[in-house]
Amino acid sequence: MREITPRDNKGSIIIRFTYSGKEYCFSPLPGSKYADKFALAKAKEIASNIRNDCMAGYFDPTLTKYKPNALQGRTKEAAIRDAEDARAEYEARLSVNAVDLLQLFEDYTLFKSKTLASNSMIDYDRIKNKIRRCPHKLVRDAVQIMQWLVNDHKGTSTSSLEKQWKLINACCKWGVSTDKLQSNPFEDKKNLIPSTKNTGTRDDINPFSDNERKRIIQAFYASDSYKYYAPLVEFLFTTGCRPEEALALQWKHVKGAKITFCQKLTASGEIEAGTKTQSKRSITINDQLRNVVEGIKPVKCDQDDFIFPAKKGGNIDWHNFANRAWKSVLGTLPDIEYRNPYQMRHTAITEMVRSGNDSAMVARWVGNSANMIVKRYLGDVSDIVMPCG
């Protein structure tokens, strides 16, 4: 607990502190001045007693114990009764959400395992290992747990921290709904994750040129470290589908040259039915892309296996891909302006329109309205010559 010290409030003495989420502020010696050394010394003694009581569990929330003048005329029995009441209140607060987080998360994982794809369980296991190493064990210690996760985090991207918070938060929401918890102390703790500088968002419309697109795809195939992702990059640059749709594709969704998008990978690593705007849509890919897809299909694979899995199994972490593979490969192409990988979708849609395809048809291919294609996803076509009348 932080030190508690008297403060100068326009010449008078006050003590302000927070305990168990509640802020307290009072004058321990009404009428005394901050400049009075004897009064200030007495106030420091009172502040020290408050801190010691808080740490020992004997804090008096009525503050009567810490107001010397207020103790005049009080009986010993009354003082003991107040102390017992304060102790009871403290113990009652400690009992709230005094649930082992690891056990709760294991119960939640078991509950989710009934609906999650087996590969998605990898993320849950990773977070369980994190919780197991954390020195703070109870759900009520949400602040300390989040601070430990932040301090334990390696790297500059906070996407994995956000995923950890989302899954733990979802776990505690489930805990409340099943009466295992009185409340969810993680609900408002996302702000404890430090923000990182954004290098471009989905809303930035700045597509690559056709030449840049081809060079980026070639650079991925030529990369010793990241060529594993080359088929995914080519697929996204060609189809214009959303990354979360591609990462959720399974082999059962491919029938020859026809691919059906009917689910998406959420930020918390779960597979949800439907795409962002519709329940499903199908496209027919060209021979070149069909060869790419068939080229990465294992000789022996289950129909429920993902087409674009992570190297070690499970789903690809899009944020890790963006901050490692994407940045590294584009770093080898210094003459190409860096842009967020979501620009692969913008680029594909822009090229479809440039090729003379009707906006309504493009909208059906990529899962949006024709109006939205023109309004948001159509990139710069200022270099296209207008037809003469």
Rank of each mutant, 00 (worst) to 15 (best):
N206W: 04
D8Q: 02
W165F: 10
S209I: 08
E77Y: 11
I283W: 07
A83L: 14
S118Y: 07
G31P: 08
A117S: 13
K197T: 15
K114Q: 13
D203S: 14
P341A: 03
D125N: 09
E245T: 03
W326M: 04
V233W: 00
P309F: 07
E351F: 08
I122N: 08
E244H: 13
A88M: 09
D383G: 07
E270W: 07
I127G: 01
E91Q: 11
D85P: 01
L289K: 07
D210R: 15
V353N: 05
A86M: 08
F105H: 07
P341M: 01
V385E: 15
M361A: 15
G73W: 04
P185G: 02
K10L: 10
L63I: 10
N191C: 13
K137E: 00
K128S: 10
V176T: 01
I259D: 08
Y24M: 11
N52Q: 13
I296G: 06
D380N: 15
H346K: 06
D302Q: 13
A35L: 12
D287Q: 14
Y66T: 06
V139W: 00
C134K: 01
G73Y: 02
V143C: 00
K264V: 13
S157Y: 03
Y228C: 02
E337C: 11
T62R: 11
A43G: 05
R51G: 03
A70D: 09
D304K: 12
